[in-house]
Design a protein around this nucleic acid. Structure first.
Lengths: 199, 199
DNA sequence: AGAATTAGACTGACCAGTCGGTTTTATTTC
DNA sequence: GAAATAAAACCGACTGGTCAGTCTAATTCT
């Protein structure tokens, strides 16, 4: 039966996620993961070849999650501005869900900067989003629903805004309502980019 | 003579900055800092009580730098939108200057999330910028040069955009021209927030 | 001289990863 | 369906190496 095996594997993953997020990747010892997750050292290394491989597995899980979320959302709307808004909605949801795990996202980013292997792994999907936004904006611009501008600029603007909101959310006490703040900011940005009636 | 002493101190700081940025704080050993900076272990610990205190010193240096830069820039313009633009200009410059050290900024952020002591240290100046922007936007809104909106929202939008641009700059190959991209994005954001002629 | 600074060998804690062995689960055979 | 066998999962004491920080002695400045 692979069921037990699968279960410990995910337990390793989840416990690691928890610890990596709260105390950081480097500071989290394998021993601690094992203790907190009631896993033995041997079992840990039976499932993962290294501590870092757990990190990578978490990264992959995170990326595919985001990807699925976006993929399911993008097909729905036909109007470009609302389509963008929908994707942003998804984004807000996503951050809402995983507030506690946000620091890990930073850790991913940081490691990407230092390690070319991780960089490649993260960049590919990232580039995919950029391209997707680019296409969306191009369409919007040509159909007149978005102002005449460099679509790349629009994409980067939107993504930057989203990332920056994430970053700030991380720093502020949990009490603050970043979910609605994010929504408002994004919709206002889109409003500012929308095509003007005449032009 | 304190001159030599001062010199080794800054050499420790600069070498650490270099290494922390390129290979990360955790991965950088004190021995390596000493080797690369031609400093002995004893000297190192004569000037700093711990590795982490070097980190903190770098953080302080960074923060006061930013602060000075902003402080000198803010007084110049009287018109609100152009004042904001000026501050953003400064920001762009600032990122331009320290491209290589950008990863350290992330490291600061990450540690702030994990360590309350660091958090306090970073939050204070951060809050100062937010407040400053708030005031600026409030003024702009009341004088009509900025749209009617929550000034906090405007501040967070602008800061988010700036942070997000930084984040993305870090990930992309050095070739890309983020300096002009940043400028364009920020000025477009301000354009979108500017007061409409009628209203 | 003597205070400040520099030198670098040394220590002790910590920690990722290993290894020999046990227990649980799955499969085969009678 | 139960005994026998194989395979997968689990266990935790142990190791080897790393690294922040210490200590004593030497050197350099005033």
């Amino acid at each position: 039966m692979q069921k037990r095996s699968q279960e410990t594997r995910t337990r390793i993953l989840n416990t690691s996620l928890e610890l990596f997020s709260t105390i950081g990747y480097e500071k989290t010892g394998v021993a601690l993961i094992c203790e907190k997750g009631s896993i033995s050292k041997g079992s840990f290394y039976h499932h993962f070849p290294s501590k870092h491989s757990v990190f990578e597995a978490l990264l992959d899980r995170w990326l595919t999650n985001i990807d699925n979320q976006f993929e399911s959302e993008i097909a729905l709307s036909v109007d470009v501005p609302s389509s963008i808004l929908a994707m942003s909605e998804t984004f807000a949801q996503l951050t809402q869900l995983s507030t506690d795990y946000l620091p890990l996202f930073l850790e991913f980013w940081l490691q990407s900067v230092h390690d070319p292997m991780i960089w490649q792994r993260t960049t590919a999907p990232y580039q995919k989003y950029v391209d997707r936004f680019n296409l969306l904006f191009e369409k919007g611009i040509s159909e007149g629903s978005i102002q005449k501008m460099d679509p790349k600029e629009a994409s980067y603007m939107l993504i930057s805004l989203a990332l920056g909101l994430l970053l700030q959310k991380m720093m502020s006490p949990q009490s603050e309502d970043w979910s609605s703040m994010s929504k408002n900011c994004i919709s206002r940005l889109i409003q500012g980019i929308k095509g003007v009636p005449n032009a």
